[in-house]
Nucleic acid binder design. Structure first.
Lengths: 117, 117
DNA sequence: CGCTTGTTCAACCGTCGGGTTGACAACATC
DNA sequence: GATGTTGTCAACCCGACGGTTGAACAAGCG
C-alpha cells in the first residue's frame, strides 16, 4: 500500500486513531498521555502512532526520553482535494443531466419508463 | 466496525475503490462495465461495490437484469466536516500558541531548554 | 421451455491489521 | 552503578480483507 492517499484514508479509518488525532488537535502529547484514556496497552498506541506517522499525519520529536507527538494537519488537504474533486464532478454531472432533461425535444428517447404514451 | 465515519474512510482506503468512485463521478455504470478496466474478476468488483454501498457512497437500482451503480456524493460531507473540524482546531491552537509566545513576559517558564541563563 | 447475460452467494486461501506479552534501549535520578 | 521511567522492537494470536473458483439466482430472448 504505497500511495499516500491510501495511507491517510486507512489511517483515519480506525476510531482510536481518529480519537488520537482529535486529542492532538488540542495540543502535543506523549505516548503515555495518549494511551491513558484507553484500556489498551501503550504498545498498541505506539503502533497506532506509527501508522499515523507513516501517513504523514503526525510527527515525533525527541525531548530527553520523551517523544512528544505533534499533529501535521497539512496532509488533510490531500484528502479534501480528492474528495472535493469528485464531489464537484458528480454535482457537475447532475447539473448537466438536468440541462439535458430540460432541453429535451419531445422525440421518444430509449427511456424504459413512459415514452410519452 | 459500526460507525459510519470508519466505514467511509475504510471504503476509500482502497485504490481500486477510489478508482471506482472516480469512474462513477462521470456517470452511472454496471458492475461489468466497472470491472472491465481491471484484471480482477467481476465478483471482486461486486465485493468492492458492497463495501462502498455499506459506506453509503453508492446505491444500486434494478433495471431489468442490470444493476446500475450510482454515486451518492452526500456522504463525502461527513468526512470533510470531520477533517475541517480538526484542521481548524489545529490551526487555531497554532495561532493561540503564537499569541502566547508573542505576549510572553520574560519570567522563566518551566522550559527545560534555556531558562534565560 | 431452454439458453444466454448479468450479478450475487458460498467456500476457501493468503495476507494484513490490531491486539497482546516479553525483552530491550535510552535517559534521569538516587 | 542500581533503579525507575518512557518508549520501541519482536514474536505471536486471531479476525477481517482482497482475491479466487464454482454454483446459484434473476431476467430477457431464441
Amino acid at each position: 500500500m504505497a500511495d499516500p492517499l491510501s495511507r491517510v484514508f486507512s489511517a483515519l479509518a480506525d476510531p482510536t486513531r481518529r480519537d488520537i488525532v482529535a486529542r492532538l488537535a488540542v495540543g502535543d502529547a506523549t505516548v503515555n498521555e495518549l494511551a491513558a484514556p484507553y484500556d489498551v496497552t501503550v504498545q498498541a498506541v505506539s503502533k497506532h502512532l506509527r501508522v499515523l506517522e507513516d501517513a504523514g499525519l503526525v510527527s515525533r520529536s525527541r525531548e530527553a526520553q520523551r517523544r512528544p507527538v505533534h499533529l501535521e494537519a497539512e496532509v488533510f488537504d490531500l484528502m479534501t482535494k480528492w474528495i472535493e474533486r469528485y464531489r464537484r464532478q458528480a454535482e457537475e454531472r447532475y447539473r448537466r443531466l438536468d440541462d439535458v432533461l430540460r432541453a429535451m425535444p419531445d422525440a421518444d428517447p430509449p427511456s424504459p419508463e413512459g415514452p410519452t404514451p
